[in-house]
Design a protein around this nucleic acid. Structure first.
Lengths: 162, 162
DNA sequence: GTAGGAATACTCGGATAAGAACTGTCCGAGTGGGCGAGG
DNA sequence: CCTCGCCCACTCGGACAGTTCTTATCCGAGTATTCCTAC
């Protein structure tokens, strides 16, 4: 069990977009080339981010993707949920229903204490992810690696020259 | 992305074993029949628990599985790790290595701040799971559903009669 | 020289295959009990 | 009646398929640029 590769791509790509300024969109091919990623598959992940309202896409000749919201309004949980979907890590299949005294009309996802304990852990994970926004991460990177914003902008400028 | 079905089976089965007493092992077929689970596949999960040192197995005519440790010494994290493996939820593939200024000799799982943020969430999840033992869960169930221990023992007694 | 328009190059978007992981099943190795024969 | 030994039933354990999900790719719809032609 592990999260999709797309989560890593999505977070780093969104972070790059915070440094590029949103005056105009950046195409999938440029975003993919930045990390040597397969463009078509990255495009698939970006579409998920658009559906989630995190990115905005503009079609056509000079189209591309840009952040749809302020970085401070985008949490890591938003990105993870956009890629992985809203389902919890642990899915209770209600096996208590098949045990002694199991009732078909009871929702054991609410009653079962095992399910409850797993849901609490799930919640701790989500709360930690929700507490960190793209703006926080951007500030942390700029504090630890001050050269990153300029290096990122320069690299994208090179990619645009081609 | 979601945890294996086996996690739910493993936790409930271990919980049942805490009520049965460890005087002698319980066979896979009985444990499976309790929840109407496929016996061979449950056996696969139980083997993982044995390898993790959570259960002990005795082969032969009257063999079966029993808890290898005290319920207070078995956390939910132990069971989850036994079934799912030790890998973190988020796997950092170090895509920064392919970006501008990426160095082949740097371990970006330690340096990358995105990876760090995801690891922190992972840790919150694991800490929550590690804080709850089988003994805690057993006590909670007995407090909320006092009839469960006897009902469980009775049901297993029926299964043994066959 | 200028305006209009058609061709074009580049973009996103969803529909379509290959690979891996989870799910499910089967059969062999090993052990302990049960039955029968002999004393 | 008791003891010994063989046979058998039942167990775990790892090797073997089916199905779902992740990964990867391709082609069509749409738009802004760009070039050409007519005025």
């Amino acid at each position: 069990m592990r999260l999709s590769q797309g989560v890593e791509w999505a977070i780093h790509t969104c972070l790059n977009l915070t440094w590029l300024g949103a005056e105009r969109g950046v195409s999938t091919s440029r975003l993919a080339e930045f990390y040597q990623l397969p463009p078509a598959y990255l495009n698939k992940q970006l579409q998920s981010l658009v559906r989630a309202g995190i990115l905005a896409s503009t079609p056509g000749r000079r189209g591309g993707f840009s952040l749809a919201r302020q970085p401070a309004d985008i949490s890591l949980l938003d990105v993870v949920v956009a890629i992985e979907g809203p389902d919890p890590l642990f899915r209770c299949e209600q096996i208590l229903r098949a045990g002694p005294g199991g009732r078909p009309d009871v929702d054991y996802r609410e009653v079962c204490l095992v399910s409850g304990a797993m849901r609490r852990a799930d919640l701790a994970w989500r709360q930690e992810l929700a507490s960190r926004t793209l703006a926080d991460l951007k500030a942390d990177v700029e504090r630890s690696f001050p050269a990153t914003p300029d290096a990122t902008r320069d690299r994208f400028a090179e990619l645009h020259e081609r």
